[in-house]
Computed example of a mutant assay.
Amino acid sequence: MALNSRYSQHARRALAQARLMAQDYQHDAVDTDHLLVGILCERGSLGSQVLTDLDIDMRRAELEVRVLHALADPVAAPLELTGALLEVLRLSAEESRGFGHHYIGTEHMLLALARSRAGGAADLLRTLAVSPDQIRRRVRLLLSDGVTELSIETAKRVARLSELSRRVLNAASQLAAQDSTGPAGIDHLLLVLAREQRSQVSRILRDCGLDEMALSGALRQRTIPTVPTSEALLEEMIDHAVDRADHLGTHYTGTDHILLALAENPHGAALLQRYGVNLGKLFEAIRHDLLPPRGR
């Protein structure tokens, strides 16, 4: 399933949940009802909040989806998306643009499901006695109050960042504003990390060969090859840093986790190598000098 780079993390996980559900239930394709329940299962998302507020029971919804489709034997791998679901994804992007949002969240997917009324989601909603108009009204009410999925995700992410990590991200945004280059990207982030003397990351980058002057000059002259959707890429990388911190058992996300996430991202790794960083040496330094062993 090719994912639009503008999808929020919750939207990505809802789509992944939809595919897993279709596979587990031995259905022959991923349909709109799978996506509806995938959104419901994605706790913490705006879409799940809307569906829960409408008193949709997750267990009952899952049972209804199971019997909406015939069993496939054998199950295709990977599962295709139905035409109805592809249309809903197209409409989700349209709904996002209509609100002037730069991301596609589960709230936009719900509006698209309510608008399309195609595929298994329409049958599922009828069975659950929930109308598309109810969904539409509830989503629009939240959006009119300024609640968006991205604001929820950002608040959660920022709450996990160390004070120094927050300062680094703010400095990257300020650097981008000074250069009049639009939103901050991973190139701005790398330069700020290199200059942040309060963090060990700065020393590690120098020891691993980063040519800070070349990076700074390229930013000023905008000679760095562009990467797709740099703002979305930066947000995705910060999400990965938060996940890595969780995996390592730390209660905060530090600049070391941010550097690790940057190095593990293909675009980030290419950027680091372009300006002289030895990735093997960098990973070794992060592992031994920055990140504590698990359980300590």
Results as ranks from 00 to 15, higher is better:
A2S: 13
A2G: 05
S8F: 03
H10P: 06
H10Q: 14
A16R: 06
R19F: 05
D24W: 00
H27E: 11
A29V: 02
V30T: 08
D31Y: 05
T32A: 04
D33Q: 03
L36F: 06
V37A: 01
C41G: 00
C41A: 14
G44S: 04
S45Y: 02
G47R: 00
V50E: 06
L51V: 03
D55S: 08
I56Y: 03
R59H: 09
R60Q: 08
E62L: 14
L63P: 00
E64Q: 06
V65E: 04
V67H: 04
L68C: 02
L71Y: 06
A72R: 01
V75I: 09
A77R: 10
E80N: 09
L81N: 13
L81D: 14
T82R: 01
A84K: 00
A84L: 03
A84W: 02
V88E: 05
L91A: 10
L91D: 10
S92Y: 02
R97I: 04
G98I: 07
H101M: 05
G105H: 04
T106Q: 06
T106K: 02
H108G: 12
H108I: 09
L111A: 08
L111S: 09
L113D: 11
A114V: 02
R117N: 10
G119F: 05
G119D: 11
A121I: 04
D123F: 00
D123H: 02
D123Q: 05
L125W: 03
R126Y: 00
T127S: 12
A129P: 00
A129E: 11
V130M: 06
V130G: 10
I135K: 01
G146Y: 03
V147Q: 13
S151T: 10
S151N: 10
S151P: 01
E153C: 07
T154P: 00
A155H: 07
A155P: 03
R157A: 12
A159T: 01
R160A: 10
N170A: 14
N170V: 09
A171V: 03
A177C: 02
G182M: 01
P183I: 05
I186S: 11
H188N: 15
L189F: 05
L190Q: 13
L190W: 04
L191P: 11
L191A: 14
V192T: 09
L193P: 11
L193G: 09
S199G: 12
Q200V: 12
Q200G: 15
A214W: 05
A214H: 06
G217P: 04
Q221L: 11
Q221M: 11
Q221C: 05
P225W: 07
V227W: 10
P228G: 14
T229C: 11
E231W: 03
L234P: 10
E235D: 11
E236S: 15
H240V: 11
V242H: 04
D243Q: 07
A245K: 06
L248Q: 15
T250V: 13
T250A: 13
H251Q: 12
H251K: 04
T253V: 13
D256F: 02
H257P: 10
I258R: 04
L259N: 12
L259W: 07
L260S: 14
E264I: 04
N265H: 13
P266M: 06
A270R: 14
R274C: 07
Y275S: 04
V277Y: 08
N278F: 01
G280A: 10
I286C: 06
I286S: 15
H288C: 02
H288A: 06
P293M: 08
P293K: 09
